[in-house]
Amino acid sequence: MSASGGTKAIIAALTANLAIAVAKFVAAAFTGSSSMLAEGIHSVADSGNQVLLLIGGKRAARASTKEHPFGYGRERYFYAFVVAVVLFTIGAAFSLYEGWHKISEPTEVASPIWAFGVLIFAIIAEGFSFRTAIKESNAVRGKQSWVAFVRRSKSPELPVILLEDLGALLGLIFALFGVTMAVVTGDGIWDGIGTMMIGVLLAIIAVVLAMETKSLLVGEGASPDVEARIRAALESAPEVERIIHMRTLHLGPEELLVAAKIAVEHNDTAAEVARGIDEAERRIREAEPIARVIYLEPDLDRLRTPAAN
């Protein structure tokens, strides 16, 4: 994912959520609806999410130091994990609590026109934000399904924004359902049910994002297609007889570490081996530009080296 694409989606979501949060709180004050209050908290949490993602992207761009020789690229994973675990979970916990409270002590929804107007406005605004996230994701998704893209993407921002915007749209639909049923039936319990539905939705999204970002934070290797390109580039170098073994690790979304032991001819000179390694590194970087840290260890091709007498 390009940094500019991710930033564009984040800013679009942040702008929409700030406007929507204000509108939802105003509607909650006029209507007394717990669904609207939960949705207001949801939008505030979403806005916090986007601020954290922007901070993570800024901090990840710092130059490497002696203490962090491989740089700070994985800070983007850390902040995405914080978004998943803390903010989504807080939003879910508040919504579940507020929904239970409303079901236990139902009250009539006053001035429902405020709720309907704000919810329709919010659905339109979130729709534009979701459209931006889809457009930016399609630019890098390739032929992957949406589920595969969320699970395999090494850049956390777009999957987070996609699930966040999807959750926001579904949450608005749940809130609209709860308020509508409360108005139609005159029973405020429905408002609480809509709020509980929002809480369950946020909890599910929190679990999914936490699992995916945890995997990135712990450390993931290159995707199969990227690894295949690196292998092909390495094996195409004239001095490389074969790859004995190879490991890859993402130091950040756009930075990959490649470590490999390669077999060379037993009668190659040190100068020839050094030139071969330089050429192999050049070919790897040409095939996969994100392979920025490369360590190649030469070894004798023991499968072809003549046995000692």
Rank of each mutant, 00 (worst) to 15 (best):
K135Q: 14
F88E: 05
A237F: 00
L303S: 12
I204C: 07
S64E: 15
R275M: 14
K58I: 13
Y72P: 13
P112T: 02
I20D: 02
A203L: 15
L209H: 01
D46N: 01
Q144F: 06
A61M: 14
S111N: 15
L18I: 15
D278W: 09
K154G: 02
D187G: 02
P224N: 06
H101T: 13
S4V: 14
H68P: 04
A92D: 09
V160N: 12
V118L: 11
E108T: 12
A168D: 01
M181N: 07
A228Q: 04
A122V: 04
L217K: 05
A206R: 00
A93K: 01
G194W: 04
L14A: 12
S47W: 09
A237T: 11
S47C: 06
L158C: 08
T65E: 11
Y295A: 13
A287F: 10
Y72N: 14
A80G: 15
A203Q: 05
G192T: 10
E227N: 07
V86K: 01
H266P: 08
K154N: 10
S137G: 15
S145L: 12
A210D: 08
H266E: 13
V264G: 10
V184L: 15
I120G: 09
R62Y: 15
A110Y: 00
T195Q: 02
F70C: 05
L14R: 06
V150R: 06
I277Y: 09
D187I: 11
I134G: 04
A260Q: 03
D225I: 02
E254G: 10
Q144H: 11
T15N: 08
F30D: 05
S43Q: 02
E157W: 05
P298K: 10
A287N: 12
R59T: 13
T185C: 05
T213H: 13
E281A: 11
L256C: 08
S153T: 04
A228L: 04
I124C: 10
T269D: 14
A122K: 00
V82N: 04
G167D: 01
A80W: 07
G188V: 02
I244M: 10
L202D: 00
S153Q: 07
M181R: 09
A60H: 10
L53G: 05
S155A: 15
F70M: 12
S145K: 11
I204H: 00
W100C: 11
